[in-house]
Amino acid sequence: MKKWVVLLVMAGMLAGCSSGGTEETTKSESTTESTSVTELSTSESEKKVELKDTEFQIEGTTYTIKILDKWEVQPEEENIPFSAREELGVQGIMVYGVKKSDVNGFEIFKHGMKEQIVSTEDFQIEEGSAAEAEYQTAHYSGSEYSFTGVTEGIKIEIQYYFLETETDYIVVNLMGVPSFFEKNADLITEMLNSFVTA
């Protein structure tokens, strides 16, 4: 799907920007799955959404994160060791990062990532939509950077979570239509809280 490709290309540009010229090797492991259930409230009824555990590697460190059961894990792309998305639609997640030893500090990492986020012909960021705030998961601290844009006439929200682990600077990148984030705030928090070194 073209929309996913545009966003994947943007994330790929971001993943390569912070290495300071150091060559990066990234490996991805097969996904291991188990499920948990989270209840979501909607205006019409209670829905049960299943999450599955996934496992992958970033720069040789194994991580796990829970994602929506309906999301399909995608083959590894250059600089993107983990991504998953809906088969049809724009909701999805990407996780990538660099070794802390390859970057001169977390603030420089964040600044470099944000500098690479630009509008393209296929994706126009809405002026004034960018927002940033400190963010804390159950395991790591960092910050959230989000904005909305339009591709092929569809409004998309993109949320970047910049996190510092014991060995790496990480980006957890979630994307979807704005209503996905509005309706599933608790679920997104649960996914981010599940991100941890295996």
Rank of each mutant, 00 (worst) to 15 (best):
E72T: 04
E72V: 08
V73W: 05
V73Q: 11
P75V: 13
P75K: 07
E76V: 11
E77N: 06
E77L: 13
E78Y: 12
E78L: 10
N79E: 14
P81Q: 01
P81K: 00
S83N: 08
S83C: 02
S83L: 09
A84S: 12
A84G: 06
R85Q: 13
R85D: 00
R85V: 02
E86M: 13
E87M: 04
E87K: 05
G89C: 12
V90P: 00
G92P: 02
G92S: 10
I93G: 02
I93A: 04
M94H: 01
M94L: 12
Y96K: 04
Y96I: 06
G97D: 03
V98M: 10
K99V: 07
K99L: 14
K99Y: 09
K100Q: 15
S101L: 09
D102H: 11
N104C: 05
F106T: 10
E107N: 15
E107G: 08
F109I: 13
K110E: 15
K110M: 15
H111V: 12
H111P: 00
M113K: 09
I117V: 15
I117S: 04
S119T: 07
E121V: 10
E121S: 08
E121D: 14
E121W: 07
D122W: 00
D122E: 14
F123M: 08
F123T: 10
Q124K: 15
I125F: 04
I125R: 10
E126M: 04
E127R: 10
G128Q: 11
S129T: 12
S129L: 07
A130D: 11
A131L: 09
A131Q: 14
A133C: 06
A133F: 08
E134T: 13
E134S: 13
Y135T: 09
Q136T: 09
Q136C: 02
H139C: 07
H139Y: 15
Y140S: 04
S141R: 03
S143G: 14
E144I: 13
T148K: 15
T151I: 14
E152S: 13
K155Q: 14
I156F: 01
I156K: 00
E157L: 08
Y160N: 14
Y160L: 14
Y160I: 02
L163Y: 02
T165Y: 01
T165S: 15
T165N: 03
T167C: 03
D168T: 11
D168I: 05
Y169T: 08
Y169C: 10
I170K: 01
I170D: 00
I170T: 07
I170R: 01
N173T: 04
L174K: 01
V177R: 14
P178E: 13
P178K: 03
P178Q: 09
S179F: 11
F181N: 11
F181C: 03
N184V: 02
A185C: 03
A185S: 14
L187N: 11
L187P: 08
T189W: 02
T189K: 15
T189D: 12
M191D: 00
M191F: 00
M191Q: 01
N193A: 07
S194R: 06
F195G: 00
F195L: 09
F195W: 05
